[in-house]
């Protein structure tokens, strides 16, 4: 760890407090050597309207995904993406973004596929930083390119594929989409097909826990006790469980993956990035419709 951790008391409650920083901590450490701040948003233009001073932009659609195959970039491309942003293997990377850090956690998850050691989320993301009246600038940073090693992606530890999910049926699954997506009801609007899946519903046995339940009003993560009330008490999950989370394309479930792994200390959580756009289109996989887990 290059840059010291944030010892804010809310954070130290979490299982892995070193994975989060507060806005106050970031304001104080901006510009320190060994720290790179990365903005990752749903909206591809939002960064350009103003960003945290010195922060670099990383777009999930156009940069983290392979342009042809439905997969993430490979080790060589990842090394370029990092290097040109001034990120070395030992750099502390703090991610933040719009929508309760939904895309920031997604970017962090992809960095974790490559085993980047020190990755952290700015608690509250862009919304909290802006709400506190902290500085945003349109001045483009000019990071010096550094060497980043070519590291093979590890797709086995925190990522699940369709075959893994089929083999996992009967074990805990968390569906983090909205209740309507979970039950399979389509928003019935003439002329407008639902996006991307020919069947609606959920994977058998999956619990419905919309991802945003883990976020507080100010876009920060809820305190540990509140998260435990949802995932442990209400859903009956245990940190020893082998859990797979999914959504539509694996973005919202990255948020839940982060919560379970780093905030609640679950030992084995995988994100199924194929998610509903794969499952809901796959021939002969089992699907359950309605509110029951099935």
């Amino acid at each position: 760890m290059t840059v010291p951790q944030d010892n804010d008391p809310k954070l130290t409650d979490y299982a892995h407090p070193e994975r989060l920083v507060t806005t106050a901590w970031l304001a104080e450490h901006l510009g320190e050597p060994g720290l790179v701040v990365v903005e990752s948003d749903e909206d591809v233009l939002l960064y350009d309207t103003g960003h945290i001073p010195g922060a670099v932009k990383l777009d999930w659609h156009t940069e983290l995904n392979d342009p042809v195959t439905r997969d993430y970039v490979d080790g060589a491309r990842f090394a370029e993406i990092c290097g040109e942003r001034g990120i070395g293997r030992d750099t502390t990377v703090v991610f933040y973004g719009d929508r309760n850090n939904w895309w920031a956690t997604y970017a962090l998850w992809v960095f974790s596929l490559f085993g980047h050691p020190d990755v952290r989320i700015l608690d509250g993301g862009r919304a909290k930083w802006a709400a506190e009246g902290r500085e945003l600038t349109t001045e483009a940073p000019k990071p010096e390119t550094v060497e980043y090693p070519v590291v093979e992606r590890d797709d086995a530890t925190i990522r699940a594929f369709r075959e893994d999910v089929l083999a996992h049926l009967g074990k805990p699954l968390v569906d983090v989409r909205s209740p309507g997506e979970y039950s399979g009801e389509l928003l019935h609007m003439p002329d407008y097909p639902q996006e991307g899946a020919v069947r609606g519903g959920h994977i058998p046995g999956a619990a419905s826990v919309p991802w945003a339940r883990a976020a507080a009003e100010d876009a920060t993560f809820k305190p540990r006790a509140d998260l435990e009330a949802i995932y442990l008490t209400e859903q009956g999950l245990s940190p020893d469980d082998d859990v797979i989370a999914y959504c539509r394309i694996g973005e919202r479930s990255s948020h839940t993956w982060f919560v379970l792994t780093h905030l609640l200390g679950f030992g084995r959580v995988r994100n199924y990035d194929g998610s509903w756009t794969e499952w809901g289109n796959t021939v002969r996989v089992p699907i359950v419709q309605g509110k029951e887990r099935g």
Binding site: D43, L45, L46, T49
Partner: peptide, 9 residues
């Protein structure tokens, strides 16, 4: 909203 520049665009 202003936070949705792509949609506004």
């Amino acid at each position: 909203p202003r936070e949705a520049p792509t949609t506004r665009g």
